[in-house]
Design a protein around this nucleic acid. Structure first.
Lengths: 203, 203
DNA sequence: GCTAAATTCACCCCTTTGGGTGGTTATGGG
DNA sequence: CCCATAACCACCCAAAGGGGTGAATTTAGC
């Protein structure tokens, strides 16, 4: 079941969207009325998609949120919009949204926009390495930053020596943290660890 | 660019579908008017999706083709149908198609059915190991049966010893064919080979 | 200040992997 | 029959990997 976050400051609209999402079989894991709270939600709730009101209240608007999503997270976003001036539209295009839902909307608008966004995102980013939060949510495993970094390097097919050179650390540090990573993942070879990452990406 | 195979015995309709597919940005790699020829096409043309007329001429109808696709290949199919009696509809449901295009159809019908089918298939089968034909088409590399089998085992995270035990061969045979596989893939570790498989699956 | 966790790194030892060399047998096509 | 290809297997040796032990330093929370 895909997890949806809704960022919309008009309570009636947010509730309507939530109602449609649930009716369509999605799981609404968070509803936020301002951008700062939404950012915390992105970090902790591991959504599969976010629906963002462009003109959201708070120090961060929908476009700011979209930028953060693109930099730090691995899920698509769709904008909710009722109107937009030319300058805003230009900014909107810069962050490359996966769709727009124009208010007032129907349930079918929600459905098709979410489906298409997930599809486009799937096409574009199949192979996106799971985030630390995602690994925690799916496996209940908390990786340290270094463990996570080496997990990524390993997934890229890098040898221990290549990782040491790439991250400017000793090969002994690489071995140390691969050891702890393997223990956490309950595997005993890099092949098994890579497979674990692949399986995580299947959902 | 996604590769489409059309299996339809009414020439005018087949040509119309081909026209729409090309207009929508897909590549039509094969058009077949009977089921036996279509089977050959599936084996050699590496399609991303097949559009199957239910009542196709030949010893194999659309439903038979769908069964073979499900058993032997790794791509979705959408049925083309103008009418269907209850018995046929039951059989159709058994093979779990990814959509239906009802005649007469519009270009939008073609577009949305192909998009949704590819999306559903991507969701369902992300992680499907590429076929030998697919590897040949994408990398121009012809793997022998044994090389391919070991590539799959490696992708599952198996050690050389585990592969030897699983396939009832000597570990020396495993090493021999991993060596030739690595040469063909131009990699020098199992990690790199696994990554190559992952990248192949991204398309 | 103390403690726990994270990070950094070393070293030991054994196993596994991968590049190389070589040989035999079976099969299919010309 | 001949040749090319595929499959089967062995052995050598060096490099890489992985499980273990240990120590020092840094950071954050109590």
């Amino acid at each position: 079941m895909k997890r949806v976050i809704i960022v919309e400051d008009e309570a009636i609209i947010a509730t309507e969207i939530e109602y449609y999402c649930i009716d369509l079989g999605y799981k609404v894991v968070g509803k936020f009325m301002n951008g700062d709270a939404a950012l915390d939600g992105f970090a902790t709730l591991d959504p599969d998609i976010a629906l963002l009101d462009i003109n959201i209240k708070g120090s961060k608007d929908g476009i700011d949120l979209a930028r953060v999503i693109r930099e730090k997270y691995n899920f698509p976003f769709v904008f909710l919009t009722s109107y937009a001036d030319v300058a805003t539209l230009e900014k909107v295009k810069e962050v490359l949204p996966y769709g727009y839902i124009v208010k007032p909307f129907t349930e079918n608008d929600i459905r098709s926009n979410i489906e298409i966004a997930l599809f486009k995102f799937g096409q574009e980013s199949m192979g996106g390495f799971p985030s630390q939060a995602s690994i925690f949510n799916k496996l209940n495993i908390q990786l340290t930053d270094r463990e996570y970094q080496l997990f990524q390097g390993l997934y890229e097919g890098l040898s221990n020596k290549a990782m040491a050179d790439t991250y400017f650390i000793s090969i002994n540090t690489v071995k140390t943290y691969l050891k702890s990573l393997f223990t956490k993942l309950d595997v005993s070879s890099r092949g098994e660890a890579m497979k674990k990452a692949i399986d995580l990406m299947k959902g």
